Simulated scan of single mutants.
Amino acid sequence: MKKIILAITCASIISSVNSFGVANAHYHDYHGHHDMNINTQTNRLNFDPLINNEIVDSMHMPMMNEEFVQSGNVDKDFIANMIPHHQGAIDSAKLILEYGSNEEVKAIARNIIKTQTKEIEDFNELLANGDFSNSNLSEKAYAEFVAKEKENMAEMMNKMIAVTRTRDKKTADYTFVLAMKYHHEGALEASKQILAYTKNPQIRKIAKNIIKDQAKEIKQFDKLIEQGL
């Protein structure tokens, strides 16, 4: 049984590493061609591949530029890895305020910036002063937690990257909404995962708030897509 669990864990980590490689390849491919297309005329109401790529890239670049935290404590990992995740949402929301045209989308973007900026401040304070002593796991359980965390993140990134690879020519607003939906789903999965492990009441409250707030916004995204954004 132990060998089976170890094999599954290793397979998950390998899959995650491969997926992060795909994300990196996409990023460098896009930016390698960016300079050649710098004079592309942009109509903010229509499809522009450079803008769409920038919107999606901004969501995952903070996560890819920061070292994935494996501290040995699930509470610290959850909070530390959620900071670049939130920062990506903020960065992309700022871009859609510049390039978007749908006022409902912009209102959601403003709320993301306000809410998640405050949460990052809270997370940093918690990392500096928090007590995480109640959530230490066995070595096996912690390895399973990390493997699942990486798997969830890789799946989220691949879904976001796929948004820019569609043949359908979509607006910046649509690109932002669909990619942010997948981005939020990643936060939901991470929050549900930590709730299955942590005993820390403060961490549990944070995870539940993320689930509540971002599930609400996912419903807004789905409605906008259904309406033909």
Rank of each mutant, 00 (worst) to 15 (best):
D57A: 09
N53H: 12
R44S: 11
P84N: 14
N52K: 09
F20A: 12
V74F: 05
N46G: 00
A25W: 12
M36P: 00
A23Y: 09
E67Q: 10
L50C: 05
I83K: 01
E54Y: 03
I79F: 08
S58N: 01
M36T: 11
K76N: 11
D48C: 10
K76L: 12
L50I: 13
R44Q: 11
Y27V: 13
T40M: 12
H85P: 03
S58Q: 03
S19W: 02
F78T: 04
T42W: 07
L45P: 00
H60F: 10
G21L: 08
I83H: 08
H31R: 12
N53Q: 13
H28C: 06
I83Q: 05
N73V: 12
M36I: 15
H34A: 10
D75A: 10
L50E: 11
F20E: 07
P62Q: 07
M64V: 06
T40S: 13
H26A: 11
G72D: 13
L45R: 11
D29R: 15
N46M: 09
F20R: 05
M61G: 00
M64L: 14
H31I: 14
Y30R: 02
T40D: 15
P62W: 05
I51W: 01
I83V: 13
H31Q: 15
V74C: 06
N37Y: 10
I79L: 09
